[in-house]
C-alpha cells in the first residue's frame, strides 16, 4: 500500500511541508523502544510509535525506516519535524490508539516483515 492509503485508513494528518505520499509501504514495525526498532525492524518499514522526540527521527534514519506514524494524537515539536524533513522521512499523526492503528493497518494487509510468501 502507499503512504496515502495509510493516511486514509488512519485518518491521519501529514506533518511535513513536502511529503511524497506515493511511496510504497509493505511492512511495519511498532515500538516505543528505540533499541527494539534498531534490533528487530526490517529496512524500509513504517514505524508506528507513541514517542515523538528527536531520537525517534535519528533512529528511523539509522534503521532505514521509510515513514513514521505517531499514535494517540501525539505531535512532535517543530524542530523534530524539521529534522525529519531534512532526512526525507514523512511523518503522520493519528488520533487512534496504538492498538487500533496496528489493527486497522493489519486488517488492510500490512505485515511486520516482507509480504513475500515464505
Amino acid at each position: 500500500m502507499t503512504l496515502e492509503d495509510i493516511q486514509t485508513i488512519l485518518n491521519a494528518a501529514v506533518l511535513a511541508r513536502r511529503a511524497d505520499l506515493g511511496v510504497s509501504i509493505d511492512r511495519a514495525y511498532c515500538a516505543d523502544l528505540m533499541s527494539d526498532v534498531l534490533a528487530f525492524s526490517v529496512t524500509n518499514s513504517l514505524l508506528i510509535t507513541g514517542l515523538t522526540n528527536a531520537q525517534v527521527i535519528r533512529t528511523a534514519e539509522i534503521a532505514d525506516i521509510r515513514a513514521i506514524v505517531f499514535v494517540q494524537s501525539k505531535r512532535p515539536d517543530m524542530e523534530t519535524i524539521a529534522l525529519a524533513e531534512g532526512r526525507k522521512i514523512p511523518l503522520l499523526a493519528t488520533q487512534l490508539s496504538m492498538f487500533d492503528t496496528c489493527g486497522k493497518l493489519y486488517a488492510n494487509g500490512l505485515r511486520s516483515q516482507s509480504v513475500d510468501p515464505a
Partner: peptide, 12 residues
Amino acid sequence: EMGFGSGMGLPN
C-alpha cells in the same frame, strides 16, 4: 522515556 534503556544496545 526517550525510548532507550532496554538493555539491547551492546548485544545489538
